[in-house]
Design a protein around this nucleic acid. Sequence first.
DNA 1: AGCAGTTAGTTAGTCATTGCCTAATTATAA
DNA 2: TTATAATTAGGCAATGACTAACTAACTGCT
Lengths: 138, 138
Amino acid sequence: MNKKEHLFITFEKLLRVKSECSSSIFSECGLSDITIKQMGYLKAIDECEEVTFSRLAEITRNSKPTITEMVNKFVKMECVYRERSTLDGRIFYIRLTEKGQTIARLERNSLLRLIERMTGSLDEKDMDTLVRILQKVK
Amino acid sequence: MNKKEHLFITFEKLLRVKSECSSSIFSECGLSDITIKQMGYLKAIDECEEVTFSRLAEITRNSKPTITEMVNKFVKMECVYRERSTLDGRIFYIRLTEKGQTIARLERNSLLRLIERMTGSLDEKDMDTLVRILQKVK
DNA sequence: AGCAGTTAGTTAGTCATTGCCTAATTATAA
DNA sequence: TTATAATTAGGCAATGACTAACTAACTGCT
């Protein structure tokens, strides 16, 4: 087996672990049936500091009623909640619950779990070596 | 910054590259709007040597008409084609086109592209070291 | 202070697509 | 002739989108 194949198999194993971590996160949140679109919306909400219905409609290029329905669905899923502005009673901010944020940051969270797993099996020197080598990749 | 954070950032960069490779593959195939379910069916077809409509209905726990519709959709998307059995004219095998197989094996293909990128920046010794260290991860 | 106009979000009603089903049909084999 | 493989017809729920009309709340002007 050549070096590329070795590398492929090694990374495949790591990615399988990460993918299992993603699945665990979804099922821990009871959201295994979430759609690609819904993931996209949660990420869009997470990327904003404070986001109103109108603003999210702008960002995602949807109508306001679409956002209302989407938010209602997310509220039922316990991913987001509304917070009324104290300055202007017409305005509601869309906020992620802890669960919503966990899912919005799924990539990050599953990678964190993988890194935990790695650091459990590697010593300090190995980690330094890994970082040193992988940083060369352009 | 501690070693875990370093490792996180390093892997995040690699995974971003891989994710860009996945997106490129989808758009090269003109299939950026494929759904999670459809991906699952393509993988199921790919995992079988030879699969008929009835067999795929069994495997995926769906009715036969569901498979017919799904296959018709995939035929329009140029992901699969029918091949009539020479032994029994009632039987059709569901076969992946090249495009269908590329998508069914997306994980593999995007990882292959990432590995290509890595091997372009690393020397033989680095690759050996990577494999040696990463194989320790349980 | 009070009304008119503007703005934020919601409701009602519609629509296309996906993904699934059962029942009936057609074509082929045994 | 009967059984089997796949298809057609017709239906249904959920997702994800829209426009038009509405309600609630703020803003500005007299």
